[in-house]
Design a protein around this nucleic acid. Structure first.
Lengths: 325, 325
DNA sequence: TTGTATGCGTTATCAG
DNA sequence: CTGATAACGCATACAA
């Protein structure tokens, strides 16, 4: 709701001129005399006039707002991404509307449609773990909605993506574990649906191979809701440590997974790195505080967010002064 | 922008009826025949009609969106708060527009005005550390904008607030430190401007007094940008540990302060709790992972967020069917 | 029950 | 240079 009752009409009435004149003065049109302009501007300020963005949106068919859908806000990585997005968007005068998929496909669909129906000018999204079907986004994309994927991307839609070198991250981390003497390296990853998972696991595999180590199926674990439900991680760790031949290292492919595994190991009294070495993705402060330091893979989350919104606004603006959708 | 060109007019034209008829059918008005309603609904679905929320907002003078301003998104506590807000708001069909003050007064003013000008129906805010003057919010409040304060509140505006018992938190934590043998308990707090700081430091003081311990000025430190700038925390810790009589315990009054102090201690090789005991607020996973466990004070951030949005929407709705502002 | 006209705040297109 | 008018998409008071 507008808490500034004063409209362009009010200042027009106050000055005894027409609304068009006021509009022109405000928009700094060239077709207006300096005196009237001055007059209008003064009056507008005095009356504390502020333009109504809703009316503007209706007229211009754009809302100067962007939608952001992440799996979960309360997550080190994603909250940093949002930080980057918001900072830059704010400077450019764009609203940032946040929605969470909570890793649920159904929730993601609803979020996407909700935001689309709210007329966002563009969308930044990191896919939910459950999402395997991209129709809901393909539709919008086909209709011309600018979309940028971040971190968890898809090949099925041809648009900008912002990612880090996931393959490289796990490749290097795995190799580091091997250099440190590990041979039985387990990996705990998120859903295979996720692009990040696939790339990261591929890096792990390649590193093993490059070092002549055979991959053992019993050491590779995927978890669906590892980011949300802690129990799943616990179960996997338990399984790993009841193997006849226990792993001598664990690689984790996400923030929450890393934290979850650390927690579980601590509860079970398994020491890192004495009993098992650990490496993985993390954007929290945790690794810095743990003794001894872990091999961790960080993502420049804030910068990724900034890059995403930057790309998005470029698309939004090129579309504005361009072709019909 | 709307990616659904089809409007109420299109379906009216397609059916050869008037827009009002369509509107009525869609709004399930009683003044319409079941047959035409059926017809319209079918056609609307077929044409994939979705209402334009912007036009609706313009007409009804409400946007079904709420603004949220927090000091920083990438912060355990606040991101959990946002999680709670978003979850509930989404279910009720409200947009959540996020903005960060980054602890800056000037930025907070701009955020507030930005959101207000974007016609949010209500505002949830946690004040910036710098904010001492509340005019920017008083104005909006006077004009009738529903506001709910969360965590960092103010007495100067009479509206709903969502907080935990801050006094109690530090009182208990301090007492626990004392029970464990600490006598020279330092406190590292955020700005005194913040309600949370005042209440938390008060709890500390009261606990000292109740246990017959004299407060030592050299052990009480406030930091302005502790949440954002790490260097400040480091400096305070350094100062504390170059005192002739070093502290035997430290109490921290926020998430970032707790993490920051832990980091600094680790870098300086000061062991917890052997060299110094530690207690404080934290909503991260860190304390659970550290050995030995710290005395920590947790806030039910998600629930606080949910409570805030619940209160806010109540205000928004009572205002809707009520008095003019 | 349905259609017509009006207005929400703004800008663009015409006349004057 | 300025004023009147239409239009954006929708809901509604009023007329039929």
């Amino acid at each position: 709701m507008k808490y500034n009752a004063v409209t362009i009409k009010d200042v027009a009435k106050a000055l005894g001129v027409s609304t068009s004149t006021v509009s022109r003065a405000l928009r700094d049109s060239h077709e207006i005399s300096p005196e009237t302009k001055e007059l209008v501007l003064e009056c507008a300020k005095r009356l504390n006039y502020t333009p109504n963005p809703i009316a503007l949106s209706l007229k211009e068919k754009k809302s100067r707002s962007v939608g952001v859908i992440v799996p979960e806000v309360a997550n080190g990585f994603f909250s940093q991404v949002i930080n980057g997005i918001e900072s830059l968007a704010f400077d450019k005068g764009y609203d940032v509307i946040i929605s969470q998929s909570l890793e649920s496909y159904e929730r993601e669909i609803r979020s996407v449609q909700f935001l689309a129906s709210r007329s966002v000018d563009g969308l930044i999204i990191s896919l939910a773990a459950e999402t395997a079907n991209l129709e809901h986004l393909q539709q919008l994309h086909a209709r011309g909605l600018p979309i940028v994927f971040i971190d968890r991307i898809t090949d099925e839609i041809n648009t900008h993506r912002v990612i880090v070198d996931n393959f490289r991250g796990t490749y290097d981390a795995t190799e580091h574990l091997i250099q440190s003497g590990a041979r039985r390296i387990a990996v705990i990853a998120a859903t295979e649906f996720l692009s990040t998972t696939r790339e990261r696991v591929a890096g792990y595999r390649e590193a093993l191979q490059a070092n002549g180590i055979k991959e053992l199926p019993e050491l590779v674990h995927y978890c669906f809701y590892g980011g949300i439900e802690f129990a799943e991680i616990e179960e996997i760790v338990n399984k790993l440590f009841t193997l006849r031949q226990k792993p001598d290292a664990i690689l984790t492919t996400s923030d929450k997974l890393t934290t979850g595994v650390l927690k579980t190991l601590k509860r079970r009294g398994i020491k890192v790195p004495q009993d098992v070495a650990l490496a993985g993705f993390s954007n929290t402060d945790i690794p810095e505080l743990i003794d001894p330091p872990l091999t961790l893979i960080r993502q420049p989350a804030r910068e990724m967010g900034a890059a995403a919104i930057d790309l998005l606004l470029q698309m939004v603006n090129s579309k504005r002064r361009g072709e019909r959708v």
